[in-house]
Design a protein around this nucleic acid. Structure first.
Length: 554
RNA sequence: GCGCCUGUAGCUCAGUUGGAUAGAGCAACGGACUUCUAAUCCGUAGGUCGGGGGUUCGAAUCCCUUCAGGCGCGCCA
């Protein structure tokens, strides 16, 4: 609908300008939007206001001329008016809104899908938590946002790959192995002074215990180094399996699990350094190799190879992004915890230095989650082992509620997640409001089936019987869905879907309370069945993007 | 000290990229169940958009400044 209008308006502008011998140019800031108040029409545009400046004319006069022109050649507008300082308000004919039911019926689960992405390849990399401990609630937020964003981009016509980057090499892995090894010895009766900078969590003891049960005491007789190597691999594998399990239960699936270590095995890290060297982006100082990040706006240059010869995490990341480019992604989206924000300029600098346009890489920072219990904060630290895991959150408040809470706010808003509140409010949680709308519709169809009512195909239904304001409102909201998908995909903001679904559910509940659906009035009943069927389909499609279930019963 | 994020109703948050009279949910108050699920609906009340300047036809939104909170400023990852 919005696209249709855009076309009509543009044609009218061209016609108008043409008659005055003025050449048409792109109009920056030209918008067609949905006004907040219904009195301002179904859509409204600021064209006249924007154009008035360059034409040196009164905005209202421009709007007047335009609205007359637009009124000439449209068959879907019932009224075009000039309002306020020079807005043009469009009122769409009721009959047009009713067409959405046919569109939904034709598209079904594809209704709302768009070709905005034109099959371009996008990679969304998210979670990517170090395999040194279970996922906590902050990872959960990143998981919900990343997964839903991937779903959204898929719906918007992109080819999406979801990836998890595993930091399976480096000092923290050695610490993990050592921690497990020490717990192993401790559990076998040795008195151990457990270092404070090692991983303290009980899950480490569990892993050690499992090794004892399977392998016995044999590592006590072996030398330390190979033993730690064994424990490193063992712990990493167990933890990674746990992470995968948690993500699966959170309805999050990754297509690829990318190993940092593989970047070394394939020589990609060396190659990345070579490339930067050739471009003279590196220099040696103080015994280390530095990248000229300041040349691209970062506040200081960054070390790539340390004095002792080992590469930094940053070096891996440059190589990783080189690899991403080489895999041919048109768009690369990294979802990071906001505590890594200081890292952004440096990575952007590296991208540019590699000769890639920095617009290709989007880094979405997801603000940290402040976990609360009964109004007071819960301290969290992987190393100290004091944290609430994603697993516990899923078990306590449920997958659907947790995902919805994460997805009903912008990713850069700070979030206080109160477990007690999330549980105690579960009856009033917005997620149930949306799901309930879906379930209600199911139960109407169930009753229809019980009564032996035959549901007509939409093509046979006389939708012109849908004239009540509640019905028209539903039809309009249903028609907006494809626009919501495109807008959310463009801005990379999945939370818009959640709010849209809340609006749709509200309109459904409102309609439901006002109008009886199953009745003796055959054609009207069929029209109403058609409308709630459409609502149910859109609810289902939207919830799917959010990764939230659409139950038939509650 | 420097940088990034945030500040909107009592609470939790939206606000269509600068638009018209700032909106939801919860909590509060008053109504609606012998009828498709009351996990719902209808109504009332609640605001100097942290404060102060500026930019313009027009600012919660952009700029400057200031206050408050969070997070970063490693040859860690």
């Amino acid at each position: 609908m919005r696209k249709k209008l855009q076309l009509v308006v543009l044609n009218s502008i061209k016609a108008l300008l043409g008659r005055q011998g003025i050449e048409y140019k792109d109009i920056p800031g030209f918008q067609i939007e949905r006004p907040k108040t219904e009195a301002h029409g179904d859509y409204s545009s600021n064209v006249a206001l924007v154009m008035a400046g360059s034409l040196k004319k009164n905005p209202r006069d421009v709007a007047q001329a335009l609205s007359e022109e637009i009124g000439k050649d449209t068959d879907f507008l019932s009224k075009v008016e000039v309002a306020g300082p020079g807005f043009i308000n469009f009122f769409v004919k009721d009959s047009c809104w009713r067409e959405v039911l046919t569109e939904i019926d034709r598209g079904r689960k594809n209704y709302g899908r768009s070709d905005l992405g034109q099959r371009r390849k996008v990679q969304v990399e998210f979670v990517s938590a170090n395999p040194t401990g279970p996922l906590h609630i902050g990872h959960g937020r990143g998981a919900a946002v990343g997964d839903s964003l991937a779903n959204l981009l898929d719906a918007a016509g992109f080819q999406v790959a979801r990836e998890y980057y595993i930091n399976d090499i480096g000092t923290q892995m050695e610490t993990l192995g050592a921690s497990t090894y020490l717990r192993y010895r401790e559990l076998l009766g040795e008195k151990i002074e457990f270092p404070a900078n090692h991983y303290q969590g009980d899950y480490i003891k569990d892993i050690a215990q499992a090794v004892i049960e399977r392998e016995g005491q044999r590592f006590l007789n072996e030398s330390t180094e190979p033993a730690i190597t064994y424990f490193t691999r063992e712990a990493q594998q167990v933890i990674l399996e746990g992470i995968k399990r948690d993500l699966t239960d959170f309805n999050v699936l990754h297509d690829h699990w990318f190993s940092e270590k593989s970047l070394f095995d394939t020589g990609t890290v060396d190659r990345a350094i070579e490339i930067l060297k050739e471009k003279e982006m590196l220099y040696e100082a103080e015994g280390a190799l530095w990248f000229k990040a300041t040349a691209f706006g970062d506040e200081k240059d960054r070390v790539v190879v340390r004095g002792k010869g080992a590469t930094t995490y940053f070096a891996s990341d440059i190589a990783y992004h080189l690899n991403k480019f080489e895999r041919g992604f048109d768009l690369i989206i990294d979802i990071w915890g906001a505590d890594h924000h200081g890292y952004v300029p440096r990575l952007k600098a590296a991208v540019e230095a590699l000769g890639q346009p920095k617009e290709k890489v989007h880094i979405i920072l997801v603000q940290l989650v402040n976990l609360m219990r009964g109004g007071s904060p819960v301290a969290m630290s992987t190393r100290s082992g004091e944290f609430v895991t994603l697993r516990e959150v899923i078990d306590e408040v449920g997958k659907d509620a947790a995902r919805f809470i994460f997805l009903t706010r912008r990713s850069n808003s700070h979030l206080d997640f109160d477990l007690d509140l999330a549980k105690s409010q579960s009856q009033e949680n917005p997620v149930y409001y949306v799901q309930y709308a879906h379930a209600r519709i199911s139960s109407v169809f169930e009753l229809a089936a019980e009564k032996g009512i035959e549901v007509w195909p939409v093509a046979k239904v006389d939708t012109s019987l849908l004239t009540a304001p509640e019905e028209l409102r539903l039809l309009k909201i249903l028609s907006f869905y494809p626009e919501v998908i495109e807008d959310s995909a463009t801005t990379l903001e999945p939370h818009r879907i959640a709010f849209y679904l809340g609006d749709l559910a509200a309109a459904l509940h409102n309609f439901y309370n006002k109008h009886r659906i199953i009745s003796d009035a055959g054609p009207l009943m069929q029209a109403r069945l058609a409308i709630i069927q459409g609502v149910q389909q859109v609810l289902k499609n939207g919830l799917k993007i959010l990764g939230v279930s659409a139950p038939d019963k509650m």
